[in-house]
């Protein structure tokens, strides 16, 4: 699979990554190369093979419904770029 400039733009948008115009051909080449590597997978027929999501065949453990988290707003917001009145601030959200 060889990726074009428009593919890169589309994926970069999907992943919300600003990519310099000048860097696009480089990304197109690199990602195409990676996809060629990845497509070696097609050498093996996997029909009927159950997908494996996790190394262990284990079940989800359940947590009791008890409140143990206290308010730590100031502590947890110490790394926030912009905060006011306890809210994280972002450019206007338009719906």
């Amino acid at each position: 699979m060889s990726l074009e400039k428009t593919d890169i733009e589309k994926i970069a948008h999907l992943a919300r990554l600003a990519i310099d115009e000048a860097a696009i051909p480089g990304y197109a080449e690199d990602l195409s190369g990676i996809l060629s590597l990845v497509e070696e997978m097609n050498a093996v027929d996997t029909d009927g093979v159950e997908p494996l999501a996790h190394p262990h065949d284990a079940d989800q453990r359940l947590r009791d419904d008890l409140v143990t988290e206290e308010n730590q707003r100031e502590h947890l917001q110490q790394n926030a770029p912009q905060v006011d009145a306890g809210l994280f601030l972002v450019p206007k959200v338009i719906e």
């Binding site: 990726l3 593919d7 890169i8 994926i11 970069a12 999907l14 992943a15 990554l17 990519i19 990304y27 690199d30 990602l31 990676i34 996809l35 990845v38």
Partner: peptide
């Protein structure tokens, strides 16, 4: 960024 893009692509 390359890996994020590959990942977004293969899941799309």
């Amino acid at each position: 960024k390359r890996r994020i893009m590959i990942g977004a692509y293969v899941l799309s």
